[in-house]
């Protein structure tokens, strides 16, 4: 009798807990893969395809499924570092050369207005119409270089974004700033 009671109690407990777990798994179900979202937040969203995937999200999915973390040149070594931190993987050197951030510039005199670059731009950063001059919206350009190959007249070039007063950063205080000698005041 006692044996049966014990079994009944355990069985009841199992049913109750099982029901609770089942309920929780439905109630608190996580939509989508949170890991992919976290990875995607680290990727620079240039949508350049240099990783071999058609955009940052597919690459994020690929990383979540075990692909290498060092295939994103725009993210740079820092991006690899952050991905390694997130995923607990080893930091690997970038498998391509790291370039300074750049934007595309259309030589408007050469442009023939073919709209091929407009179709290629992943972020709609090129304005223009058929047989009209095209130009790049500098603020929106991610520097992905996808507009270079389709241009039939090679009028697009990449230019590095130089340092200016607006994007200048205070340097890590290691080197003492030395005073420049005052120009001889007449």
């Amino acid at each position: 009798m006692e044996l049966l009671l014990a079994i009944a109690v355990m069985a009841l407990g199992a049913v109750v807990l099982g029901a609770a777990l089942g309920y929780a798994s439905i109630k608190f179900k996580v939509e989508g893969d949170p890991l992919v979202e976290k990875i995607e937040a680290i990727l620079p969203q240039t949508q350049c395809g240099q990783c071999g995937y058609p955009g940052c999200k597919p690459y994020a999915e690929a990383i979540a499924n075990g692909d290498e973390i060092n295939k994103c040149p725009p993210g740079g070594a820092e991006g690899v570092q952050r991905l390694a931190d997130l995923l607990g993987r080893e930091v690997k050197p970038l498998d391509a050369e790291e370039k300074p951030k750049q934007i595309a510039i259309i030589d408007e005199n050469t442009c023939i207005g073919c709209t091929l670059c407009i179709q290629a731009c992943p972020v709609d950063a090129i304005v223009g119409a058929a047989k009209q001059m095209h130009t790049i919206i500098a603020q929106q350009c991610t520097g992905c270089e996808l507009c270079l190959p389709p241009c039939p007249v090679e009028c697009i070039r990449m230019a590095a974004i130089g340092e200016n007063i607006d994007n200048w950063k205070w340097k890590y205080p290691v080197v003492e700033i030395k005073a420049m000698p005052l120009k001889e005041a007449a």
Binding site: E40, L43, Q45, T46, G55, C56, D124, T142, K169, W170
Partner: peptide, 26 residues
């Protein structure tokens, strides 16, 4: 140094978010 780094990151983050929205919209 820390402030300007944080601002730079903020700018980059905003640019990336913008690019993502535009890419998805495209």
């Amino acid at each position: 140094f820390a402030k300007s780094e944080i601002w730079a990151r903020e700018r980059e983050k905003n640019a990336a978010d913008q690019a993502k929205i535009r890419f998805e919209f495209k």
